[in-house]
Design a protein around this nucleic acid. Structure first.
Lengths: 208, 208
DNA sequence: ACCTGAACACCGTTCAAGT
DNA sequence: ACCTGAACACCGTTCAAGT
């Protein structure tokens, strides 16, 4: 009898390609994800990838959805938002990727979960869609900024010094007391705590 | 007498380079901004750019700041937010650029204006910096999503069809009434009106 | 059907050589 | 000091040729 097609465990598949992409993105960052790096990692030929994935853009979207899928399981909107923030903290490339296209699978998945979560807050109709869009946009914006900041945190203390110097420049260059205090916005905050404070402002604005 | 250095009006300068970059970005989009396109537009040699700008990243940041500078003049936070949204609507490449690096000049400029604006709402200390960060992140996130959506609006009706089909798929695949209504989040909204609704949710959350 | 790897048409950046 | 343009070291994607 002829056996079923053997399906060698190392056969190329969309799943294995996406898996490799996530690993490379986590290891070398966004700039490290080249088609050449992927094919080297899978020890296959250059063009083999294109039999399973249409192009690099789709590969990035698939990698993002792979990570987000595991995260949108939280019950409350607050937990959901925090889960997304933490995922982007662990995978900084996610921040830029989610901001790139609102109709990619990962963003739609987030939209769905937020929508469901907000329904339990008693929202419906326009109020629901306005609040849902606002919360999703806040989460994606905050996470993108945090990820971009963390990415260049090679010289973390250097960045802190830079922001402090800038705050001093603002305070010094303008007598307006408003500017003086606005300068305090800049340096040294716990991004995660500040992110949660923002979520709470939104939730207060929704129920208010 | 020897005249002052003549300063031919077409002499290369950082200002003219940034100006050309903005024009190219507006015309051909983010993918159209190549160093080759810039040098062709200014009819100069490849490497001449590098005497006035350190690299492409800095050129993009300078282009973004050039546009934002003209926008952060509004008085109320609401007007300021709307001005940024409209600027990104006109210059879609701005959406991705502002999300790329929180310590670039344009983002810091926005932070300063929002900080000053929120002080007039009576905020100070941690409440001010939390609210400032939240508002900036929301504005940048919403604008980035809007710009990304608008960028692929070549087939605008195609995208609308896609979202409607997806909403139908959500509604059909899940009996949960929460999902049913969450599907209504997806298609057909006025992004600008929804953006403003989000700003108002946020302002309500601050004063609440 | 799936895979290979050379070839193509691009990039950003550098640098010796000119003015 | 500023500019030129060829050269370098990369990209993503395609495609004839193999299995």
């Amino acid at each position: 009898m002829v056996p079923m097609t053997p399906r060698r465990s190392d056969a190329l598949s969309r799943e294995r390609i996406v898996e490799a992409a996530v690993r490379i993105l986590d290891t070398k960052g966004e700039g490290g994800l080249t088609l050449r790096a992927v094919t080297a990692h899978l020890s296959t030929g250059r063009g083999a990838i294109y039999h399973h994935v249409t192009n690099k853009e789709e590969l990035l979207a698939a990698a993002a959805d792979d990570v987000i899928r595991a995260v949108v399981t939280g019950d409350s909107v607050r937990d959901l938002a925090l889960g997304i923030f933490d995922a982007i903290d662990v995978h900084p490339w996610l921040g830029a990727q989610l901001a790139r296209d609102p109709s990619q699978p990962a963003v739609l998945r987030i939209f769905k979960s937020v929508g469901v979560g907000l329904r339990t807050h008693g929202l419906a109709g326009t109020a629901l869609s306005d609040a849902g869009a606002a919360l999703v946009n806040y989460v994606l914006g905050a996470a993108a900024q945090h990820a971009a900041g963390a990415r260049q945190a090679a010289g973390e203390s250097a960045r802190e010094d830079y922001l402090e110097a800038l705050a001093a420049e603002w305070a010094g260059s303008d007598d307006d007391p408003l500017v003086q205090e606005a300068a305090a916005l800049l340096p040294g905050h716990d991004d995660r705590a500040q992110f949660l404070a923002g979520v709470d402002i939104f939730l207060r604005g929704i129920s208010g």
